[in-house]
Amino acid sequence: MKELAIKGTIIDNNSKDVYDYFEIEHTAPKDIINELDGDDIKITVNSYGGLVNAGVEIYTALKAYEGNVTIDVVTAGSAASVIAMAGDTVRMSPAGQLMIHNVWTQATGDHNEMDHTSQVLKQANHALANAYQLKTGRTHEEIIQWMDEETWITAKQAVELGFADEVLFTNDANISLLASVGTPILSQETMNKLRQLKQNKQENKTEEQEQSFIDQLFF
């Protein structure tokens, strides 16, 4: 059985070069999809989430995968909790948690743009709720309410509610848990600055020039 890990921030493939270069913990869709070769897989999830579209891409690929998918959850928040729902078997660390909540974004514009953004977010909530509903068998209305309340779910509760199939270590299940902390999604402005820093390093800028640039970075 092949073993994979989803940890750190869930990002899109286009941002991977910056996260890789600066060794920021992350998972992009291609990190998982490129490893799907037909074998049964076990994926350890330890992530507070990230980009919705990237999470949905991973979830969809795993749901369509012909091999058996076992997902072991240490922490699965936001987009990572959606990915966890793709497991044929979902197992939770006894100290682990799932977190589901409403989709959020940033927007600028007039009141029409704000109204439109609100509707887009509501539709995204309903779309993601389908993944939770498919796994749990709970009603759509229940799940939407839990998302609206930002619900944190323990291992025992996850099994009771249908988000997970078993709690690890209680039935001789075994796993090597991977420690991880959440990392923020970098803004496009910060991404551009980091790409410039990467280019400066490659062009052998002086240490003084490099430090001056670093001082301008805001995460």
Rank of each mutant, 00 (worst) to 15 (best):
K198D: 12
D172I: 06
E3M: 12
L4A: 01
L51V: 02
E3G: 00
K135P: 10
I24N: 08
A5R: 06
I11S: 00
I11Q: 00
D39T: 13
L36D: 05
L121W: 03
L36Q: 01
D110A: 02
I32F: 00
L186Q: 06
P184I: 01
A5V: 13
D31E: 05
D88T: 02
W104K: 13
A84H: 04
T117S: 07
S47T: 04
G182Y: 06
N200P: 00
A107F: 08
T9L: 07
Y19W: 08
A76M: 11
V159S: 04
N53S: 10
N46Q: 07
R91T: 08
D172Y: 02
H140S: 14
M85H: 02
K135I: 06
A124Q: 06
T108N: 13
T151G: 09
Y65S: 08
I58D: 03
V52E: 06
K156T: 11
N192W: 00
M114K: 10
L98K: 08
A173G: 09
R91G: 07
S187F: 10
I58T: 07
A86P: 12
V181K: 00
H111T: 05
F213Q: 15
V73L: 01
A173E: 11
V159C: 05
D72W: 10
I24V: 15
D115C: 01
W104R: 10
Q133S: 07
N102E: 10
V167P: 11
E66C: 13
T105N: 12
K201N: 05
I24E: 05
T108C: 05
P29K: 09
E166A: 14
M147L: 03
P184A: 00
Q188I: 13
N14W: 00
Q211T: 13
N53E: 14
Q216N: 13
A28P: 06
V167T: 14
G87W: 13
D39P: 01
A76V: 07
D37V: 12
Y48K: 14
E35L: 05
V181A: 00
W146F: 09
N102C: 10
L194R: 04
Q157C: 02
K122A: 10
V73K: 00
S93W: 04
M85K: 02
W104Q: 14
S93Q: 03
G8T: 10
L186A: 12
D12R: 04
I33S: 09
V82C: 04
I11L: 00
T139N: 07
N34D: 15
Q106M: 08
Q97N: 15
D148N: 15
I100M: 07
H116S: 04
N112A: 13
D20R: 07
E149H: 09
Q211H: 09
S93I: 00
H101Y: 13
N171Q: 12
Q211D: 06
